[in-house]
Computed example of a mutant assay.
Amino acid sequence: MAQISSDRRDVIADRLLDIAEFSHAHWFFGNLYEALVKIPDRVAASEATPGLPRSPFGAGSPGRYYAPVAPISAPAAIAALATGWNHARSRRWLMVAAASSTTGAAATAYLLRSINPKLFFSRYPLDETHRKPLLKKWYRIHALRLTASAVALAAVHQARTIRLRSQVGIDGS
């Protein structure tokens, strides 16, 4: 396999950081909005459209907004770490970004597999006694996702800042 030049690796790492920063901002602010306006409470209590099952992409569901961008967040942060590894000054921030992003992705996977199907996509909305404990668990795990996305976004931003300063010759130490 051909060796990639250092300059080319830097360009790739910079582009991956651009993607990671955009996707983590999308993820963070989407998650924040979702929690503040209590989207899960609304979706969990909503009836399906007549003749159609409740769906991850149905009316009111944030799935249609996350689906195009969310899956690239963790891979972009991990790839930025791999391609930017040779830059010692930004390495720790890239590690924090990749770890936080992976943590948030794992929490999301848990929600998507274990909580969301029962809470949001059952044939009919759950009654209050079954819905309330699931919503409570959903919000606890969502708080972890929100924190992970905030940390990842801040770490990606810090790594980008360090890399940009080094490119223009500004010593940030």
Score class of each variant (00 low, 15 high):
Ala76Asp: 03
Asn116Leu: 07
Ala154Ser: 00
Thr129Gly: 11
Ala98Asn: 09
Lys132Cys: 00
Gly63Tyr: 10
Leu144Tyr: 03
His130Tyr: 08
Ala109Tyr: 02
His130Gly: 04
Pro125Trp: 00
Ala150Thr: 12
Pro68Glu: 02
Lys118Leu: 06
Ala88Ser: 10
Leu119Gly: 02
Leu36Ser: 07
Tyr33Gly: 15
Ile39Thr: 08
Leu32Phe: 01
Ala105Asn: 09
Ala88Val: 08
Ala76Ser: 10
Pro117Asn: 07
Tyr139Trp: 04
Arg89Thr: 09
Ser122Tyr: 06
Ser46Glu: 13
Val151Lys: 06
Thr103Gly: 13
Pro50Gly: 14
Ser46Pro: 06
Val96Asn: 00
Tyr124Phe: 09
Leu126Trp: 01
His87Glu: 08
Ile78Val: 15
Phe121Cys: 05
Pro50Ser: 14
Ile39Phe: 06
Ala48Phe: 10
Ala59His: 13
Leu111Phe: 07
Thr102Ser: 10
Pro62Cys: 09
Phe57Trp: 14
Val43Gly: 12
Ile78Gly: 09
Leu112Cys: 13
Leu146Ile: 05
His157Phe: 12
Leu144Ser: 12
Ser90Asp: 11
Gly84Leu: 11
Ser100Val: 03
Ala76Asn: 03
Ser55Trp: 15
Lys136Ile: 04
Lys38Ile: 14
His87Arg: 12
Ser90Phe: 08
Ala59Ser: 14
Thr129Glu: 09
Ala59Pro: 14
Ala35Pro: 04
Arg89Ser: 13
Ser90Glu: 12
Ser114Trp: 07
Ala106Phe: 00
Leu126Gln: 03
Thr102His: 02
Ser61Lys: 12
Asp41Thr: 08
Ala44Ser: 14
Ala70Asn: 05
Asn31Lys: 05
Arg91Val: 04
Leu36Asn: 11
Thr103Ser: 13
Arg42Ser: 13
Ala67Cys: 08
Glu128Pro: 06
Ile39Arg: 06
Ser90Ala: 08
Pro117Gln: 08
Tyr33Phe: 14
Ala67Asn: 09
His157Cys: 11
Ser46Leu: 10
Ala150Pro: 07
Ala44Thr: 09
Pro40Cys: 08
